[in-house]
């Protein structure tokens, strides 16, 4: 019996959400008086012993080129075999693109109950109850997993990491790897920019900005904050901004530490994509904009005047 945490990597680097999953899994292991083990698939440039800082005692690594791309069926089968080999009873993933693709397959192969989008540690006093977000962040469900093996995907940015100073041991695993089920024709990674789903700060613009030519000030503000840029649905639909920047019910759902909404009225469908943000700032010239009700801080004012001033004020603070 142990807790196995799947550590996702991309181009040889461990993902930020994976460290959070490691810390979460280690906390689950502590609750159960057992060990937190990590699994890394593929060739990784980053040091794996650092996972000890997040409470992992041992890291298993399988180095094969096939793991350079996520083939959901191949990953699910390999992870399932490792779960059996190390006798894990709880398997943790991040609720990211990879976790969403792979965890359901692992759950089926192990006949394990699956809770996706978990946001708190399990409660063990009456069953094994995991809290997850439902209704696009508008509510939580408490879900009891009754199967012997349990699979959880953790919402990014929902668990506070407490680091310790420990080194994990790293052990290479040999397993048979099934043949690829898909053939990768091309990959197109967005480089340079901060990916939206991983950003700590997101600066987002809406119809109030009047046209794509006015996005310079959004980008300037994002730049000083090392933030990602996003937009509302009408903006993406009008092709002012690319679709992958659309946050909301039917776009990307995000949970950054800080979400700055500029010229966005705050329709319920938009809020569904951003309501898990820790702090929300709304800048809108309409004092009746519904977004103010969901905001922590607000400025009623003309974005074209406020935003450049805000960028300047942040620069000034950073220079001190």
């Amino acid at each position: 019996m142990s807790v196995l945490i799947f550590i996702d990597q991309s181009e040889g680097h461990l993902k930020k959400a994976s460290f959070e999953a490691a810390a979460y899994g280690a906390a689950v292991a502590k609750q159960m008086n057992t060990n937190a083990l990590a699994l890394v698939l593929g060739n990784v440039a980053d040091g794996l012993t650092q996972l000890g800082n997040y409470g992992i005692s041992k890291v298993y690594q399988i180095q094969k080129d096939i793991f350079n791309h996520v083939d959901a069926q191949v990953f699910a089968t390999v992870i399932t075999n490792v779960v059996k080999q190390v006798d894990a009873s709880i398997v943790i993933f991040s609720h990211t693109q990879t976790g969403k693709a792979v965890a359901p397959g692992v759950a089926v192969q192990l006949k394990a109950g699956l809770v996706t989008g978990a946001c708190a540690l399990p409660q063990n006093d009456n069953g094994f109850v995991v809290k997850k977000t439902v209704f696009s962040g508008k509510a939580f469900a408490l879900v009891n997993i009754t199967s012997p093996i349990k699979v959880i995907t953790l919402n990014p940015n929902s668990f506070g990491i407490q680091m310790i100073t420990e080194n994990a041991t790293v052990e290479a695993l040999e397993v048979t790897v099934p043949n690829a089920t898909i053939q990768v024709v091309a990959t197109n990674k967005v480089s340079g920019e901060v990916p939206l789903s991983e950003a700590d700060i997101v600066v987002s613009g809406g119809r109030g900005l009047k046209g794509p030519e006015n996005w310079g000030m959004i980008e300037d503000l994002a730049h000083v904050l090392h933030a990602a840029t996003a937009c509302s649905r009408p903006v993406a639909d009008a092709h002012w901004r690319p679709h992958h920047e659309h946050v909301g019910q039917t776009g990307v759902q995000i949970a950054p530490n800080l979400y700055i909404a500029i010229g966005i009225s705050g329709a319920i469908q938009h809020l569904a994509g951003v309501n898990r943000s820790k702090t929300i700032v709304v800048i809108n010239k309409d004092p009746e904009a519904p977004f103010f009700k969901a905001a922590d801080y607000g400025i009623v004012g003309d974005a074209f005047e406020v935003v450049p001033k805000l960028t300047a004020a942040i620069k000034e603070m950073q220079s001190k």
């Binding site: 109950g113 469900a141 905001a295």
Partner: peptide
């Protein structure tokens, strides 16, 4: 393999702090 035992609503926001433009 799983059962929803209860739902919860998130705590209400404390209310927006408005700052002059």
């Amino acid at each position: 393999l799983t059962h929803i035992v209860a739902y919860e609503l998130p705590p209400a926001k404390a209310g927006v702090k408005l700052v002059p433009a």
